[in-house]
Amino acid sequence: MVLAVRAGGISIGYIDEEEEYIVWAVRGVDLAIEEGDAFCLVGESGSGKTTFASAIAGILPPHAVTRGKLYIFDRLAIDESTWNFNGLRGRVVSYIPQNPGTSLSPFLTVEDHFYYVLRDTLRYDREKSRKAAMEALLKVGLDRGVLEDYPHELSGGMQQRVLIAIALASNAKIIVADEPTSAIDANLRASVLQLLGRLNREYRVTLLLVTHDLASTSIVCNRLAVMLAGKIVETGRTISVLRNPQHPYTKMLLDCVPLLGVKKPLKPLPGEPIQVVEDKAICPFRERCPRAIDKCVEEPPLKPVGDEENHYVKCWRLTGVESG
């Protein structure tokens, strides 16, 4: 099996304006995404999903700091604090951004966007890029009429689909989608997700889907990771994690969303999202965890769950350490 993405103890932080402290958004994540996987990253707002996704897409802002290593198809893209994404962006990894409203240049038509992307990645000329653009637009359910439009002439949902189409057009092997359905109607949402799922199955495009909507994960993804305060607290096959959640946080997440085919009462998620300033090794969920124990002031290791393949969880409760 070829690994599309391999993160080895990667930490990503943002340095503040006065360069006095670093907000660590991702803290020591180990992760492997195999080629052809559809990998979902779920977690609450501020848990570091976008940060991690932009590291893979190669667009960390200049005031981001990194530790650890990140490989993309065995290319070392992040090596401690040095980054090298040359040749990866667009061709190996493409990206669907989170905010459709601001992610297209207001001064360029949709066709221009396609043209500049395809010219610079695949050396297409106007003619060829127009054809590719029409094909890609068709896939996301837009007609060729939008090619002449400027972004402000499109609705939020249309902008989002244009973004998806552009990301698809350059035939990248990995697509990083940061909440691609947040601005789309519910009926379109399913079809866009299905489209991503189909791309993944039919063209073996590796998909990293960032979402905080657990329902969408079950449609598309075969693998799932739950992120909390910059750490991955549980990961495994989607079915395995959804059916048999181990971490208290995952359980709570599942308690508050309706899932297809599962009947259960819904409960609100207690507590406030967590922001991490200092990098102390504690269980990030300790404060909000209904089952916290004294041991939780230390960081738990990532331990395999039972005999499920690839299902890991990070919780003292599940490592044999009971009450204390």
Binding site: S54, A57, G58, I59, P61, R89, G90, R91, V93, S94, Y95, P97, N99, T102, S103, L104, S105, P106, F107, L108, D112, H113, Y116, V117, R119, D120, T121, L163, I166, A167, S170, V176
Partner: peptide
Amino acid sequence: LEDYVRTAVAWGVRRNTIIKHFVLKS
């Protein structure tokens, strides 16, 4: 610092194209 520049970078648009067509036009 605009989102659309960031996104264009992620799509593999080259630096010169970005400056000429994404930044200057704005």
